[in-house]
């Protein structure tokens, strides 16, 4: 990456045209004034990354009597043999794959459904957006009570309808699915919003031409609308994937990774090793690998997106 290309002012590459002394002073002032802000941002971004990397090679419990002890790659070696870590990786990917794929399908379907004129359209649209706007922790705590198998409202309804009750987030077998349901409920509207924006910007001509040629609604959607929506869907996919890999609030509010680690994703495991177990070295190693995972997945998605844009 060429830094000069992005920050010409910082490195004084754009001063060729300025000849008069006054202009030159302005340029210097401009360059100087940008530095403090840039410095703070760089510090805020780079310090945590470097510190996490540093701690990852150490063993430290937060003691004020003894500082971090250098252990080399020991933390990373232990992680490769740590069942909880490896299971957390798998769970993170499972959660992301399940939640994001359903959100994309539902989001696109809802966007197409709501993209026509009907009475009360704005009201419906607003209602759909509410979950997306609420605070995840509040949502988590509310769902926690609704899921409670003994006093929660879901089992109350199931019982009223004489249906078998579920243990929801309160057992190892159903907890993960229960959490995925909340994520879908909350973030499908986000996908819907992105796709709706793209829909409203789509050219009408290809669809009208297809209808003139005798295509039915499904054909015109599948062969024309959907391919045209692909860039928007990829954007939604990228946002949702990165976000879902990092999911924390909902899991923490409902299960804290339990029961018996059944919902412990990487983010939760990193939090627990750091802030409950006070193993800051080990926890930093978890975080570093976690960031790497997010980077890799994001880069793959960005590649795919470029490929699609090139195609179009």
């Amino acid at each position: 990456m060429n830094l000069f290309q992005y920050f010409p002012q910082l490195f004084g590459k754009q001063t060729k045209s300025s000849k008069s002394p006054r202009r030159k002073d302005d340029d210097i002032a401009r360059r100087v004034m940008i530095w403090p802000g840039t410095f703070v941002v760089l510090l805020l971004v780079s310090f945590p990354v470097i510190y996490v990397l540093y701690l990852g090679f150490h063993d430290w419990s937060g003691s004020i009597l003894t500082g971090p002890k250098f252990v080399g790659l020991a933390n990373y070696q232990s992680l490769m043999k740590d069942d909880r870590f490896l299971n957390a990786v798998v769970r993170t990917l499972q959660f992301t794959l399940a939640a994001v794929s359903i959100e994309i399908v539902l989001g696109v379907a809802l966007a197409v459904l709501l993209n026509r004129e009907f009475w009360g359209k704005n009201l419906v649209r607003t209602l759909f957006l509410l979950p997306f706007m609420a605070t995840p922790v509040v949502i988590g705590l509310t769902w926690l009570m609704m899921y409670n198998p003994a006093i929660g409202v879901f089992n109350y309804f199931l019982k009223s309808l004489s249906l078998p009750i579920s243990t929801w987030s309160y057992s190892t077998s159903t907890a993960m699915a229960s959490l995925i349901i909340i994520d879908i409920w909350q973030y499908t509207p986000m996908v819907m919003l992105i796709v709706m924006a793209a829909l409203s910007a789509l050219p009408r001509e290809p669809i009208e031409a297809a209808i003139v040629d005798g295509a039915n609604a499904w054909q015109s959607f599948y062969f024309i609308t959907l391919p045209l929506l692909r860039p928007a869907i990829i954007i939604a996919l990228l946002f949702r994937t990165i976000d879902t890999l990092k999911v924390f609030d909902i899991i923490f509010a409902l299960t804290q990774g339990g029961p018996a680690f059944a919902t412990e994703t990487l983010n939760i495991y990193a939090f627990i090793t750091n802030f409950q177990y006070l193993r800051f070295g080990y926890g930093s190693a978890v975080i570093f690998l976690f960031v790497m995972l997010i980077l890799i997945v994001s880069m793959i998605l960005i590649r795919i997106r470029r490929g699609i844009e090139a195609e179009l």
């Binding site: 409670n148 198998p149 309160y170 057992s171 190892t172 907890a175 029961p259």
Partner: peptide, 15 residues
């Protein structure tokens, strides 16, 4: 009650 494995002190107290 069902779901006791995800109940800490807060949940059990509530039930």
């Amino acid at each position: 009650p069902p779901g006791v494995v995800n109940m800490g002190s807060g949940d059990t107290f509530a039930v």
